[in-house]
Amino acid sequence: MLRLLSFLLFLVTWWIAALLIGDVKLPAPPAVLTVMLREAASGALFINLGATLARVALSFTLAMALGAAIGYLMGRVKLADRIGDPWLILLLNLPALVVIVLAYIWAGLTEVAAIAAIAVNKLPTAVVMLREGTRALDRSLDEMATVFAIPRGRAFRHVILPQLGPYIAAAARSGLSLVWKIVLVAEYLGRPNGVGFEIGVAFQLFDIPLLLAYSLTFAAVVLVIETVLVQPFELRTSRWRPRAA
């Protein structure tokens, strides 16, 4: 109910702002909705959204899988941490734009370059979070697993992984918000489709209803995915924690 109220407040504010600023710079909600429906009817909206979501899914999965494995290794093995740390600092501080431009120069304006560039941008945050999670693992539970001769695979699944759960969820949440932002830049700079590409076209044509139609649809999809997937996952990983009174 509160969410609906919040959405209505957003619409009213937007409408009033549109009336004050004028249609040329800020079109009112009906004008944007008309463009949305037109793009949806032609199928372009779904094709572009689909392309963007596919890139997000691929780069996010790649970055999370690699980041979790590297982070776990760095948290467990001191030598790996020492070797990997300078790389991590470099990647953490490298602007996303530099990575994307270099990827397009080295690998061409290809899908692989775009996905790799997005994944590389997200990778270091996943590594850092999982490294910290691994460092915080409870050694006394490791000892318990050793004493009771719990096989390594079972111990990893039932003793280690649940401890890393909150860190994986946090890495997923922050990583996803990062990927949502970077994917549009990558598409804007070097892909022939996707929400970022369409926003680029709208910018060049100064077509603000089109720009807002794609931006808002994208934002709505992000919101739905956050609500339907990310938040339940976070809740699931921490459901055993006693609730605060």
Partner: peptide, 25 residues
């Protein structure tokens, strides 16, 4: 020899129920 141990602190897995903690070992 199968070793069973009771540590000073119970060292139970907080994310598993009592029964599941025992069944894991």
């Amino acid at each position: 020899a199968r070793l069973g141990m009771v540590f000073q602190e119970p060292r139970l897995l907080p994310w598993r129920s009592v029964e599941d903690n025992i069944r894991l070992a």
